[in-house]
């Protein structure tokens, strides 16, 4: 078991290094240099060259890349951003908590809505309690999340004035972005839970539990849940990982200073070090979460645990 986990973590290192190479390479192919984008367009060429030189942008690709990797691996340092000319790590310190909070709160909310409704609609299959949530989930899974967010802004923020529609501040600023992400994910979680529970409640062991005279509530929420929720946990884990970096559109819509906005701005400004650094952060967090999900499987399901120890 421990061997397996250590191996998975060690595999992360070459993976992340490959990613830095691909992203760095792609960004270097992009047309335009940081100085021409940052300085006004009528700035003299010498001034642009001087700035590019100062940023270290005019060095050959391999030198720049090797320098970046050297700093990352041996000093644990992401280097200096072209755009702000500050250490990139400072930017992460304020932005990463925002992205993680947003991903965490919205997925927790989505799970709290999606899982119970999914179980309910599986248990009461073909009744109204099944049809209504299922049709809603089918509709919501086709809704573009940014449009849903715009509708929330229009009705809840603009028409009713309940919540602020942009920026940071108290809890009320989090309501709309969280809802935007949560509702769309809740629909997906509901669909997953429903189909996996439908399969589980027909399993032989569930019938045995019923035959033994176990109360229906215990059968569903204890016996069936354990197996029925396994695929949902995978979905939640990978969505959480994806959402940390994937909230680019939502953050853009609500003007939240998270990692998503940073990525978008940095790509547009040709700020290669920052783009690569965010990719490293995303890929590392995403894969650590996937490993944790696998570990959680082993704790929930003794059969899987047995497989690892072999």
């Amino acid at each position: 078991m421990i061997r397996y986990v250590v191996k998975r973590f060690l595999m992360l290192i070459p993976l992340v290094l490959c990613i830095t190479f691909v992203v760095y390479g792609l960004m270097s192919l992009a047309p335009g240099d940081p100085a021409s984008i940052m300085l006004p367009s009528n700035a003299p060429q010498e001034q642009k060259d001087a700035l590019n030189h100062k940023l270290g942008y005019d060095r050959p690709f391999l030198v720049k890349y090797a320098d970046f990797v050297y700093n990352l691996v041996f000093k644990g340092d992401f280097g200096i951003s072209y755009r702000t000319q500050q250490p990139i790590i400072n930017e992460f310190k304020t932005r990463l908590p925002i992205s993680i909070t947003l991903a965490f709160t919205s997925l927790t909310l989505a799970a709290c809505i999606g899982i119970p409704l999914g179980v309910l609609s599986a248990v009461k299959q073909y009744s109204l309690l099944d049809t209504i949530p299922s049709v809603m989930a089918l509709t919501l899974s086709a809704v573009p999340s940014f449009w849903f967010g715009m509708m929330l802004i229009y009705f809840l923020a603009y028409k009713l004035g309940l919540f602020p529609s942009y920026g940071m501040g108290g809890i009320e600023h989090w309501v709309l972005p969280t809802l935007t992400i949560a509702v769309v994910y809740a629909a997906e979680i509901l669909r997953y839970t429903r189909s996996s529970m439908l399969e589980t409640i027909r399993a032989d062991y569930v019938r045995t539990a019923r035959a033994k005279g176990v109360a229906e509530r215990t059968v569903i929420w204890k016996h069936a849940m354990k197996n029925g929720l396994l695929p949902v946990i995978t979905l939640l884990g990978s969505s959480f990982g994806a959402q940390i970096g994937g909230a680019i559109v939502t953050e853009n819509l609500y003007n939240l200073p998270g990692l998503g906005t940073l990525t978008l701005v940095s790509i547009n400004m040709r700020d290669t070090p920052t783009v690569v650094a965010t990719s490293v952060i995303f890929a590392t967090l995403y894969n650590i979460i996937l490993i944790l999900v696998d570990l959680m499987y082993a704790f929930i399901d003794p059969r899987i645990k047995a497989k690892y120890s072999r």
Partner: peptide, 10 residues
Amino acid sequence: ALPGSLLAIV
């Protein structure tokens, strides 16, 4: 391993 639409955006 690059989540979401990051690769597409880049």
